[in-house]
Amino acid sequence: MPLLEVNNLRTSFHTNDGDVYAVNDLSFSLEKGETLGVVGESGSGKSQLVLSIINLLASNGHMEGSIRFQGQELVGMKPREINRIRGNRIGMIFQDPMTCLNGYLTIARQMTEVLIHHQGLDYASAKKHSIEMLDAVHIPDAKSRIDRYPHEFSGGMRQRVMIAMALLCQPDLLIADEPSTALDVTVQAQIIQLMNELQQEFGMSIIMITHDLGVIAGISDNVMVMYGGRICEQAPVFELFENPSHPYTQGLLQSVPRLDTAGSVKLHSIPGNPPNLLRLPPGCAFVDRCQKVIPACGWQQPPLL
């Protein structure tokens, strides 16, 4: 049994202009210990996909389909039950470490509450365990820093704290929503390396969302390319980079700037704009921007290879 199995997931948001479908009939599965990279441009539905998994959609959001985690159905689960999974079996890291920690509480308070709530530890042992976890994400002098407030940490350090917090209960699945996007490049590399290390140490599965293909190449086993709320390509990481089959993936890969080309070369970009999620075309969502379009693209989705 896969760790996570998503079937025909549709996530929509009710707005005054109509229902916006951020995730459209999407299915995939994730094995234990596997790292799945999810790429796509802004608005492709990556974040809403993972927010759907832990049931944290905005109040006007709605899910259909099925999300099975360790055999348990998460769609339609009661808040009490989903709270037993969030932060415990599924850890989550968000994009912007500068704003995601609570600036009014000490790091100790924010970390220990997870252990106290999920594992019933007392404060002293929860704090001891939290310090160990901060050590594991290489926060220097964790023992004294744990009593500080988030604004006393740099961006990279805060993201390490977020990671440590997400891993406190040794979750089976870690969801990372662009964990390195808001950080500068050297810190990005450190964070990605850290996640690799921690995965080897704790053996959890990871869903890594990013729009940085370099990050994907560095960490993933499999890659899922999203466009317009749908999967347009899914493949093992080497295969995807070697032999991208969907024109959108090909376009994405061509858009990566390279250092090894001689002279000044104009950067490649995919012409056009992402589709309006209020009115998605019946066929392939990429149809308006695709350079290899054929008539069939207009009424049917290209099969996943």
Partner: peptide, 13 residues
């Protein structure tokens, strides 16, 4: 705000 989303993601009541 983001910190509240984080708190919810931690499974707090």
């Amino acid at each position: 705000s983001n910190p509240i989303r984080t708190a919810r993601a931690k499974g707090l009541p």
